[in-house]
């Protein structure tokens, strides 16, 4: 793992302004930010490790535990909310038997909510990885997961 992190680090200058881009690249590589990785980043940039953690934990994008193979992001935008997003989230939680922020035990799905994915006109919606699912209903949610949403 150290080699993978070092390879990323060497492509950036030792400048604090690169902290967030480095965290993004490391997470893209490892799937999450381990404490070891953060220590290495801190060391490389000469930024105290408490501050690396402070920055990483501030932003919703970063995670400190491994995530599932597929990331579900339920939109909690206003348009989605008034058109039933809470019921969509409830339904997914019910179907996958996990809460928001959790990962299924088979590491297949991680369930998250995002501020707004900007598809308000097609609300309520969610994203699985980079695919957007629009105009959802609880019934549609069941269909998506019975087919294995990640393959679509």
């Amino acid at each position: 793992m150290h080699d993978r992190i070092d390879a990323i680090l060497s492509s950036y200058g030792r400048d604090r302004a690169n902290l967030i881009p480095i965290l993004q690249s490391v997470q893209a590589e490892l799937g999450y930010l381990s404490e070891e990785a953060m220590l290495r980043i801190a060391d490389y940039l000469g930024v105290p490790e408490s501050q690396v953690y402070g920055v990483a934990s501030f932003y919703a994008q970063f995670r400190f535990t491994p995530t599932g193979r597929n990331r579900i992001m339920v939109c909690r935008g206003t348009a989605c909310h008034v058109r039933g997003a809470p019921r969509i989230l409830d339904e997914i939680q019910q179907v996958l038997n996990i809460r928001e922020g959790e990962t299924t035990s088979d590491m297949e799905y991680t369930l998250e909510t995002v501020a707004c994915i900007g598809c308000c006109a097609l609300s309520p919606c969610m994203m699985i990885n980079r695919e957007v699912y629009a105009k959802l209903t609880p019934t549609k949610v069941r269909e998506v997961f019975s087919k294995g949403g990640q393959e679509q």
Partner: peptide, 25 residues
């Protein structure tokens, strides 16, 4: 700089890396 703010909003805490015990910082 053994400690910094971590997380945000109501969840904000003063923390070491990974909220480890302070002696490990």
């Amino acid at each position: 700089s053994a400690i910094d703010y971590a997380f945000r909003g109501y969840a904000t805490v003063i923390s070491t890396l990974g909220n480890r015990p302070i002696v490990q910082s």
